[in-house]
Design a protein around this nucleic acid. Structure first.
Lengths: 163, 163
DNA sequence: GAACAATGGTGGAAAATGTCAACTATCGTT
DNA sequence: AACGATAGTTGACATTTTCCACCATTGTTC
């Protein structure tokens, strides 16, 4: 049942660097976190030159894909608090990568848009992200990659569609 | 190529709550983060009663699976700084869930062990984790689950085995 | 159309986390 | 005995979350 490749025995002071996962290995959440941790670490390292705040890239990308989106919508999509989103948009505007425009319909809302400069920046960021992921994905077949995306989407739908 | 189920059109002010992912949808890292975020959020909510610090559960589980492990080894496995691990073990000892014992071989090291009480606690935590994951995993077949674990393991190996 | 609850956005304080650089004790090697 | 490397600890510091109060605007209700 378990896909356990870490059978490292304790007791013999093994030199194999791998540790046992124990029951932790039965949970997808753990494996997910493990991989995701490393991945985001790599990505952060690759972009250490410019000091990009954590949620900044995702936010910019989401705005680019959804022109006119509101800060609340963005917040819930990226999974950040509204107040954090404010800070992020502030920064994006400071860099000149995005801008707020008052919505004519609902004057409370700020409709968000990516500037041309922001688009260029996104290109760069996406390129680096591809590099980082490439190193990881080359160990997967195209079919596996496809299936992974599919499975992750279904998991996301499942976890979101409950209260 | 992309497994995109969010084709929500912009422009028509659609009421569908789903947003477009755009190019972000081409990256596994994004999907990974998405699912993992929700999952850990759920898990945290399920355990809100006791105030469990972030890395605490994983650490306890790893120690349980590797009795006598050192703090450094634990640190690198969980992906935390040594100093953070110190704090975590402090807390675990305060709760009476784990303990340090000076290693006889190497008196610098602290060999870590889970107490019986810690084991009971782990049972409870694992049970809750199963509940949380169960809701997500029921949307996957057993074969998919298996494959997901396998793929994630390979990705982890790939990302770890590079400098 | 006046009153009131609900929503989008801001600002700021406080707690939780993560990062880093000393510093001690111990080990291994020479 | 002397040296560098490792395990653990501590404390300072920056960065991130988390919350809560607040203002402007909207929508609803009578």
């Amino acid at each position: 049942m378990a896909t356990n490749s870490n059978l490292t025995a304790r007791g013999g002071e093994t030199e194999r660097s791998n540790l046992a996962l124990g029951r932790l290995g039965d949970f997808v959440g753990f494996r997910l976190r493990r991989v995701q941790n490393q991945l985001s670490r790599k990505f952060a390292a690759a972009n250490a030159d410019m000091g990009l705040r954590s949620g900044l890239f995702s936010s910019l990308a989401i705005v680019a894909a959804n022109p006119g989106i509101s800060q609340s919508e963005l917040s819930s999509e990226v999974g950040l608090d509204k107040s954090v989103t404010v800070t992020i948009i502030d920064e994006l505007e400071k860099y000149g990568w995005a801008e707020r425009r008052r919505s004519p319909d609902d004057r409370r809302r700020h409709a968000l848009y990516v500037t041309p400069e922001g688009d260029r920046q996104l290109d760069r960021l996406f390129a680096r992200m591809e590099e980082v992921e490439g190193a990881v994905l080359h160990s997967l077949t195209e079919a596996e990659h496809q299936m992974l995306n599919d499975v992750l989407d279904r998991m996301y739908d499942a976890v979101v569609r409950e209260l």
